[in-house]
Amino acid sequence: MQLFPCPFCGPREESEFHHGGEAGNLRPDGAEVTAERWAGYLHMRDNPKGATREIWVHMTCGEFFAMSRDSVNHKVSGSSVLGEAEHGR
């Protein structure tokens, strides 16, 4: 059972959280976006092995936030409220 730090509620059990995607996957607007760019936004992922920065939502408080962790050893290095870089997914 992992503990994730919600920036609003503090450390909580993993089962209260939902993975929202990789941070920085910005959504391109418009009907003119190329098919490749749109598929990149919808589907393509870095899926890094090791250090990763992701968007999570703490379902019990409803807040989305960014979290840095390691996808191999599962150590969490920190979390923060959504910054500009993570918006516009």
């Binding site: 939502v57 807040e63 918006h87």
Partner: peptide, 11 residues
């Protein structure tokens, strides 16, 4: 509800 919240906070 979850989707509305996501777009609200995200966008």
């Amino acid at each position: 509800h979850a989707r509305l919240e996501e777009w609200r906070q995200d966008r």
